[in-house]
Design a protein around this nucleic acid. Structure first.
Lengths: 192, 192, 192, 192
DNA sequence: TATGAATGAGGGTTCATTCAT
DNA sequence: TATGAATGAACCCTCATTCAT
């Protein structure tokens, strides 16, 4: 009988805390989120957070990593699709599917990027890496489609997503995301 | 008859403070900007801010208004151009011209929108109004071009700008803005 | 009518706070003294301390300065005496006169020096300066007495005082200070 | 028959921990030393400390005891010398030999005494006992030399050491210890 | 005995806001 | 109007101590 880890232990507690942090930080913003908020969301005493993360910044960093893992698993799923065009359109579909969340809180990566840019600690670089990973993946798809301007197209695509996420959120209108998703799908289809 | 208010002192001081606030809030972000920062930037004692603004939120609101006035004067200038196509492309040129500022601090409107969305006070609505005004203007141009899908195109254009501003800022690369500006110009030219 | 500074003002409040801090820090030690302790002693709210001192360290530094001013005024008084021998013996008398305070809290300068030496911030240097000033003054007296080994004698004298202060304090016995004071007086008399 | 306690594990672990504690406490000061620091120095997990010491104070007490044992073994060695004068001068030589350590951290006993005096728990008495033991030993030597004022001389000697240790440490100058050591040696020689 | 994890009280610091003049 | 000073709530973080295994 091997399961059950006993009390006082926790196999992936660090990850659990990071996930909770990622969610709360997305919902409330980094600056407006207190450690007490995160602790409450994860149902642990505040002091305990410090056993796993020496500072709030480290917790934010861990949340970024959690987003990175999400991104990886998402692209891994998409990579199972046969053609790059299908993959890109599935990405769009995913975005549109999340539109209600976007209405309320914006794109998790984008809002982090916007907020963390004002910082001088290393956090801005961490989120930049995350954003780059997303662009890189899209670039790979466009390249596989034979486009020489793959990088530019990838940047344009991700920018379009970030921008429409911001508008969807600011104007509280999920239909913006739907319409832009459809437009981008047509655009992808139109590419040679 | 130029009825100046009261004792004639500080003829546009409120506006001066709002402008200073707008700049500092853009550079540092709302949450990371203290009233002391704004007071220093405007070269007034902290206590004096409260004579003009009862609360920090009111000051942020005033900064949003300052951005709104900027937007109005900008669109007024653009409206002097003969064709909507020229106007839109001049708008693009303006964005590209500001790319170094964008690298450092992002789009003033967009970063405000991203940050203020997390608030429950009325500030999110104020910035939404600002964003809507920009879209409305662009919609007017597309409509003048005879496009039935003018609203959708306007949203797409502003989204593209917001998105590329975010990427330019996050990745600290002004060339992203330049390239996307050129791409959007070609896109506008391609519209019937 | 010029006096009365009105409410909300305070002519030498910074100094008043520094003096209160100096006393509490002497009585309780730097590490064991909280800002709340100091605030209570000075009868101000904690937050108000930060209007005058940006950090606890600055408050400690100000307390050291207060001790320095005390030292200066003390040596200034002693300098009014006719001969260096009388001055040195008056210094001894002062120490002995303070023996009850020493029993309870030790020498203000010495205890600060002992505690602050463990620090890497600049505080250790500030207190070293204070200690050096005391030695310098004693050296001047011995030199005026014609001693070529004035520096060594000064160091020995101050060391003797610091040491007996520590013992007086540790063993809670004021008589130790009295006896050592008498012994040192005889020693000074014995010097050619 | 060497009755070792219990299961034979950790035959002197308590002592080992106390020794490690004594060193770290000397280097960093009591207040600035965390249990984690001590645990790291002794290479044991923090929780384990509590098996041997119920509280931080008990650990400090044990460290004081470790110093006491050091003192005993030192005086035992000195007692092997033929005359009290030689013993006292050997004591001085030992102090001078440790001057570099003193420059960095002060006298182990003296710094403990200075810090612990601010406490109301029994620790101040423990360190007073330690200090008294040192004075007692010196008193014995002076008495053996036939001095009626042995106690006073002993106090003066230990005070001189404590004082010069403080100055050596505060002013970061090992030569102070060397010079004062020589001076005290001459003084001892001068006693009838 | 040994240990990683948990806990919570308390400390230093920041800052929006208020107030007296 | 203008301003320096005052206030206190809230935040991040530390650390001695406890606990379950």
């Amino acid at each position: 009988m091997t399961y059950s880890k006993a009390a006082g232990q926790a196999p992936g507690k660090r990850e659990r805390l990071a996930t909770a942090a990622a969610q709360v930080l997305h919902e409330q913003g980094v600056e407006r989120t207190t450690l007490a908020d995160i602790a409450r969301a994860a149902d642990v005493p505040v002091g305990n957070l410090y056993y796993y993360f020496k500072t709030k910044n480290q917790l934010v960093e861990a949340a970024i990593d959690a987003h990175a893992r999400n991104l990886e698993s998402m692209t891994a799923e998409l990579d199972a699709l046969p053609t790059p065009r299908e993959r890109l359109k599935a990405l769009l579909a995913g975005w549109v599917g999340q539109r209600e969340l976007t209405v309320r809180f914006g794109c998790p990566t984008g809002t982090l990027a916007a907020e963390l840019d004002k910082r001088t600690d290393g956090l801005d670089e961490s989120v930049a890496r995350l954003m780059r990973a997303l662009i890189d993946w899209a670039e790979g798809q466009f390249r596989e489609m034979g486009r020489a301007d793959a990088r530019e197209l990838a940047v344009a695509l991700i920018a379009a997503y970030q921008g429409i996420s911001l508008l969807t959120n600011t104007l509280r209108d999920p239909d913006l995301m739907t319409a832009e998703g459809a437009r981008l799908a047509r655009w992808i289809d139109s590419l040679a």
